[in-house]
């Protein structure tokens, strides 16, 4: 016991000295993101830079929406209805005379919020379930994982539709539904990481030093399982935005007159012949935003977790 030090390592830092002076094992999932050159490598990854730039533009647009949007996104002038793109209205106007560009700019707030909140729900619940299930193992793990498998067996958008049908159509409920649907992936991911980490020397040492279950999970295991979670979260934000837009398109998510991109497309189908710009721009906004997060997620995966690279 002489080699065991009661002092816990910093999260994300090197394992407890109790693990000895040996370098971290090759399979240590946390090893890749601890290096100082992560940002440098990310900046050299062209796709990640492009994705990061798109994401940055969306974040800035969302933050500065009130300043940069040329018109009110909710109130329009009926005299201006269905105007084609022009110097006054760069993306034209919709059936209520509202400026589409202004609605897209304000919609970036909603889409970003949907992506972040839904992934936040998936990440926290999935991590908690996966970590506790793997750490304690036994019949509890077996039961929880069967439930996770069942949830994974449902087509995601269908499950999201069913959950929103129960909770009632609203943006908040759509975020909850998309969050629940995304949860099983995190539970599986964290479970796999925890299963491999819980037997490692530094965890055994922390246990021998008298660390409680919660502390060992939170301070020693989870920081080392972060890399795949960061990658998965970034990739999931795009998917969450797509699913939530799909729900809004079906009338189950954001309700009019909210300038949500999917909801904007919902009523646009009628004007497909008369005013194609009403259909074109909101969809383009969804695609570019999702593309940005996907590119950034792909780049992060290549940099942080090369084992997952395809």
């Amino acid at each position: 016991m002489a080699t065991v030090t009661p002092k816990a390592p910093a999260p994300g830092g090197p394992p407890n000295p109790a693990a000895g002076a040996t370098p971290p094992p090759a399979g240590d999932p946390g090893a890749a993101y601890r290096g100082p050159g992560v940002l440098r490598r990310l900046l050299r990854h062209r796709a990640a830079v492009l994705g990061g730039t798109i994401v940055l533009i969306i974040v800035l647009t969302a933050l500065l929406a009130d300043v940069i949007a040329p018109y009110d996104p909710i109130r329009g002038r009926l005299a201006d209805m269905l105007q084609p793109p022009s110097p006054e209205h760069w993306m034209g106007t919709d059936e209520q005379g509202r400026d589409i560009l202004s609605r897209i700019i304000h919609g970036s707030r909603i889409s970003l919020q949907v992506g972040l909140v839904a992934v936040g729900i998936s990440l926290t619940t999935g991590t908690l379930i996966g970590a506790v299930s793997a750490y304690f193992g036994g019949w509890f793990d077996l039961l929880v994982m069967r439930i996770i498998d069942i949830l994974l067996a449902f087509p995601s958008i269908l499950l999201a539709i069913a959950i929103t049908a129960i909770l009632g159509p609203s943006l908040t409920n759509a975020m909850i539904a998309v969050g629940i649907v995304g949860m099983p992936v995190y539970a599986r991911l964290v479970r796999a990481s925890v299963l491999s980490l819980r037997e490692q020397d530094f965890v055994q040492a922390a246990r021998a030093a008298g660390g409680g279950h919660g502390r060992i999970l939170w301070r020693h295991i989870l920081p080392n399982a972060l890399a795949p979670l960061i990658v998965q979260s970034t990739l999931s934000i795009g998917t969450a935005m797509l699913d939530a837009a799909g729900l809004s398109f079906l009338g189950l998510g954001a309700q009019p007159p909210a300038p949500e991109w999917g909801a904007m497309l919902s009523g646009a189908q009628v004007y497909i012949q008369l005013a194609p710009w009403v259909v074109t721009f909101p969809g383009l906004a969804i695609m570019v935003a999702v593309l940005g997060f996907n590119l950034l997620g792909d780049g992060l995966r290549d940099v942080l977790d090369p084992r997952l690279r395809r």
Binding site: F249, L265, V279, G283, L284, M287, N294
Partner: peptide, 11 residues
């Protein structure tokens, strides 16, 4: 993979 299929359908 980034395309909303309902939008692609409309386009």
């Amino acid at each position: 993979v980034s395309m909303p299929i309902f939008w692609l359908g409309l386009i």
